[in-house]
């Protein structure tokens, strides 16, 4: 139930983000979800793409610092309280979310939540027990 996410270091200067997405675009890699964390000096771009290994190779070749991190994707109904219910399970079980981001998929009227959690195994257990629907990479691409 774990999904591979690409994390890329980038400086906060003009054109850096463009540089990365154009590398991926030229290599025919589609970005499914994206989040950008930033500080005053640098940022970390997190991407979920269709072809992870190829994207990794391309970014390495273009001399970016890139790593693959594991995240969990959860599908919830797109309604008030949907996210809160998932976070409640984490809170009750003392699971700390390092960061998260979300996007909405209108085709199914669902929202997809991406979580980065230090103790990913524990989080998977908690969600399984609570009957929360986690999705795999394939499903994420189909949405």
């Amino acid at each position: 139930m774990k999904i591979q996410q690409l994390s890329i270091f980038l400086e906060n200067t003009a054109g850096r983000l463009y540089d990365i997405v154009s590398v991926l675009g030229k290599a025919g890699i589609n970005i499914r979800a994206l989040s950008l964390a930033d500080t005053a000096e640098f940022g970390i771009l997190r991407l979920i793409v269709d072809k992870v290994d190829k994207a990794y190779e391309e970014l390495k070749k273009s001399q970016h610092t890139v790593s693959i991190t594991e995240v969990i994707a959860v599908e919830v109904e797109d309604r008030p309280g949907g996210l809160a219910e998932v976070l409640e399970k984490f809170a009750d079980n003392d699971i700390n979310v390092e960061y998260m981001y979300a996007f909405v998929e209108k085709k199914y009227d669902n929202a997809v939540l991406i979580f980065r959690i230090e103790d990913i195994e524990a989080a998977v257990d908690v969600l399984k027990k609570a009957g929360v629907k986690m999705i795999d990479h394939q499903r994420l691409l189909e949405l």
Partner: peptide, 15 residues
């Protein structure tokens, strides 16, 4: 320069 040995995808670790 950041290299793979020290890179983390968490802001707090880089900071």
């Amino acid at each position: 320069e950041v290299n793979e040995d020290i890179f983390s995808d968490e802001v707090k670790k880089l900071l």
